[in-house]
């Protein structure tokens, strides 16, 4: 029971990290980036090959992978999403799904569809804390997730860049009127959102087996976490991810592993019906 709670918390932290960038892109630009998971997947391959081919420890890649994925994100923003900013449309959603599938197919072509795991010196270590087994890799992943959510919230709250991002999220046209180049702010915010996908991929790959479809298979979690946390809220998506992790692990431990997603989707339906603005969301967010 305690074991399930703790492992749910650790897993949930990474779910939260996975969901933060997705929620940020939606909150600022109203873009549903269904390719977010595919970007996480690409980060996983990047870190995997950096380790197996170049011997770079995954922990170093926490700094490098986000830069690479943010660069990819910027290209995607300029090439695809820029024309959809400001309003969620079916066309935007379809473009995002197509983009995710393209990235996934390219990954299958380049890396083969087989499932792999990164085996490094510390990835499979366990530590015993107060009668509870903690995976070393999961504990590190959780710590990285907490640091990320804290940093992003601090940047959004207390820097002028963060204020500008929040202003664009509130009213992009008014932000232009007061002298903020909304296009540039959006590009930066999307870079930040996809950079977070890069961090998520980096920590996930240290203990999570992966293949080209792993990104898409995790997207439902990002959707649920984002709805739970209040659409567009970064800290909310993180807490939503933690709730997802705990609910999943508790179901798995107390009921049956095969049913671990059932209460999760039930929760999504309940929230969409009765509290669509989430636990921490603002009623005004649409």
């Amino acid at each position: 029971m305690i074991q399930a709670l703790i492992s749910g918390l650790l897993l949930g932290g990474v779910y939260g990290l996975f969901s933060m960038g997705f929620s940020l892109a939606f909150g600022v630009m109203r873009i549903i980036n269904f390719a977010h998971g595919a970007m996480v997947m690409i980060a996983m391959y990047l870190v995997f090959y950096a380790y197996t081919l170049l011997g770079i420890d995954p922990l170093w890649m926490v700094l490098l992978a986000p830069v690479a994925i943010a660069a990819l994100g910027s290209v995607v923003y300029v090439g695809v999403y820029r024309r959809f900013v400001g309003r969620t449309t079916l066309q935007q959603l379809l473009a995002a799904i197509a983009l995710g599938l393209v990235l996934q197919s390219l990954a299958e072509l380049a890396f083969s569809p087989e499932t792999r795991a990164l085996r490094n010196s510390w990835g499979s270590h366990y530590i015993l804390v107060g009668g509870v087994f903690l995976s070393y890799a999961q504990a590190i992943a959780f710590a990285v997730a907490v640091i990320c959510v804290a940093l992003v919230e601090l940047v959004l709250r207390f820097t002028r860049w963060g204020q500008a991002i929040r202003a664009v999220a509130d009213d992009a046209e008014a932000a232009e009127i007061v002298g903020q180049n909304a296009q540039a702010i959006n590009l930066g915010a999307f870079g930040l959102a996809t950079g977070l996908a890069g961090v998520a991929g980096t920590v996930l790959v240290t203990y999570y087996p992966f293949n080209p479809v792993v990104g898409f298979s995790l997207m439902p979690i990002a959707l649920i976490a984002t709805v739970l946390g209040g659409l567009g809220s970064v800290g909310g998506a993180f807490l939503g991810g933690i709730i997802c992790g705990i609910v999943q692990q508790m179901t798995s431990a107390l009921w049956a592993p095969a049913l671990q997603d059932l209460p999760l989707y039930g929760l999504l339906l309940v929230f969409l019906a009765f509290r669509p603005y989430g636990l921490f969301g603002r009623r005004a967010a649409h």
């Binding site: 202003a167 009127i177 296009q183 005004a284």
Partner: peptide, 24 residues
């Protein structure tokens, strides 16, 4: 010019309906 560039040129626009940033 972009609206932001016009604002930088010293022409400020106080829009209809005030349009303050409600969550700031």
């Amino acid at each position: 010019l972009r609206p932001s560039a016009i604002a930088h040129r010293g022409i400020a626009h106080v829009p209809e309906g005030r349009r303050v940033f409600p969550h700031l």
